[in-house]
Amino acid sequence: METVLAFVIGGLYAAAIYMLLRRSVVKLLIGLGLLSHAANLLIFTAAGLTRGRAPVVTAGAPAAVIADPLPQALILTAIVIGFGVTAFALVLVFRVYSTLRTDNLDRMREADA
């Protein structure tokens, strides 16, 4: 499964970078969203996969084999931060568009000058 997920991560990265390279700023936002999926999945996979055993202590002692809790904690933080970034960027784009009437990044540069 690690091999399969490695290719999934690669696909997500490719899609994210392609979208980030667009001139349309909305596509860039979608690229940002895909990029955070890719990064989170990368941390999750690289730490090693464990099927089904959530890192929860039941009745005194933890089970012999459980999923690694540390990457999960890191990713949980990352998901939330990613949401904050996306929300802020989206509103920023909305404001930029309502001021400049363009969603083309190259044209925004010209308006800046």
Binding site: T3, I9, G10, Y13, A14
Partner: peptide, 27 residues
Amino acid sequence: DAALALAAGAMMTALVLSAVGVQLYPS
């Protein structure tokens, strides 16, 4: 752009494949 993106994706795949199961320091 697509070629660049695919190359980046391929590199990330290779990176994940190499990184899986590598534990340099005790967790």
